[in-house]
């Protein structure tokens, strides 16, 4: 599990930086950018698959976070809040592009990428990664937050801006989809 004391310490430090920014110290915001730009950019890139577009949307996300910083709840981790903002910006982008299908995926339409079981373990991993990349963004993000970032379900829910039970369901469905896509049991 994630080191809880480190997480609490990080949240407390984020809250202090946020207070500085709200007091008018614009430069303090650069500390939050330095800390979270990589994670935010990576998430947006996973969603749009374009380096320049991901940079633009990530920039929009940070600027929007700065502008609505009063709405951030001190004591809570900053990144899930930023993640939710970035995800909304990705949603808005696809909405404007008329590509809402990317975010509202019919699960039955997700194709299986392997018909035969893999022969080697390494192949297993490659196929699993390929399947992860093909997974609809909302499921992929839920799985990455839960199992790579090791977020609690409450934090996954906050980052995806959905309820707790919906977050659990999304992780479960994501795992099922992934398993089906690589042809697992």
């Amino acid at each position: 599990m994630r080191d809880t004391s480190n997480a609490i310490q990080g949240a407390s430090r984020d809250a202090e930086i946020v207070r500085d920014v709200l007091d008018g110290n614009v430069d303090a915001f650069s500390l939050l950018v330095l800390r979270y730009q990589q994670r935010a950019y990576a998430m947006v890139f996973r969603a749009v698959r374009s380096a320049s577009l991901a940079a633009d949307l990530t920039q929009d996300a940070f600027i929007q976070a700065y502008e609505k910083l009063e709405q951030f709840s001190p004591g809570r981790p900053f990144y899930p809040w930023l993640h939710a903002i970035a995800l909304n910006i990705v949603r808005d982008y696809y909405r404007k592009e008329g590509r809402q299908d990317i975010l509202h995926v019919d699960i039955d339409s997700v194709t299986t990428i392997a018909d035969e079981p893999p022969a080697e373990a390494r192949l297993d991993m490659d196929r699993a990664v390929a399947a992860l990349e093909q997974l609809p963004i909302l499921y992929r993000e839920a799985l990455i937050l839960r199992y790579r970032e090791e977020y609690e379900f409450t934090e996954v829910a906050r980052a995806l801006n959905i309820g707790l039970s919906a977050a659990k369901m999304r992780v479960k469905r994501g795992l099922e989809l992934l398993r089906d896509m690589i042809g697992g049991e």
Binding site: Q37, Q38, A42, F45, A55, Q59, V129, L178, I182
Partner: peptide, 27 residues
């Protein structure tokens, strides 16, 4: 219930690196 390889794939999923101009662009 799910194959262990699934979790390994998720944990090992590599991210794209943020470009150097992102920070000044935001600031």
């Amino acid at each position: 219930e799910y194959p262990a390889g699934l979790y390994e794939a998720i944990r090992g999923y590599e991210d794209a690196k943020a470009p150097a101009e992102l920070l000044p662009g935001i600031l």
